[in-house]
Amino acid sequence: MRLYDYEISGSCYKVRLLLSMLNLPYEKVAVDFYPGRAHRRPEFLRINPLGQIPVLADEEVVLRDAQAILLYLAARYDASATWYPADPATQGRIAMWLAFAGGELMQISAVRLHDMLMGYEEIDAVAARSAACKALAVLDQHLAECEMRGRQWIAAAHPTIADIACFAYPALCHDGGIDRSVYHNVNRWLRRVRALPGFIVMPGIPAYA
């Protein structure tokens, strides 16, 4: 299994995180995302015409999109069938929150790129930050309501790939000048994810907390 990866990418981190929790061996292919912009060059576009990372290549299966990769890895390799359970209602909820992780929460990615790297100056950081805070508030409310129903995880009574997908960018929000101290339920849930076996960090997420 090969992962086209960048250490600094939150999207790649989602996949690295699940791979670690599933204890799956894989080969990392380092893509010079920045400053090299290798993900936009012809050799990489042959692998993913959208020019995005991560990409997972598992024998004949080649997948782009972190959320899709999480689903595949859980469906294929999770013997416990808990990361992506067979229950349709849970699958529906997971899909909903995977879409949120790849959608609304990516506003954090936008403002993070704008604030950190060159070449993203055109991003409207004020608008992105505001949209990101709205998304965090939605997640905070959802997690509060989960707790009221006696649940501690986003889509089920146990961790699923929805939790992995939604973890990365809220955990990285300081990189984009977002203070998440007001989202108490998000912070409690982030802590729960950190305590899961196989948890790993990435730059911007401290080893100590």
């Binding site: 600094i8 380092a30 010079d32 090299g36 290798a38 950190m116 300081h174 990189d175 730059p203």
Partner: peptide, 23 residues
């Protein structure tokens, strides 16, 4: 070590510092 691997090692270390520096 490939150029990209060395680059990512360095970027990893610096981005870890950035969190501290901004706080």
């Amino acid at each position: 070590t490939t150029d990209t691997e060395a680059l990512h090692f360095q970027q990893t270390v610096f981005l870890q510092d950035r969190l501290i520096l901004e706080q």
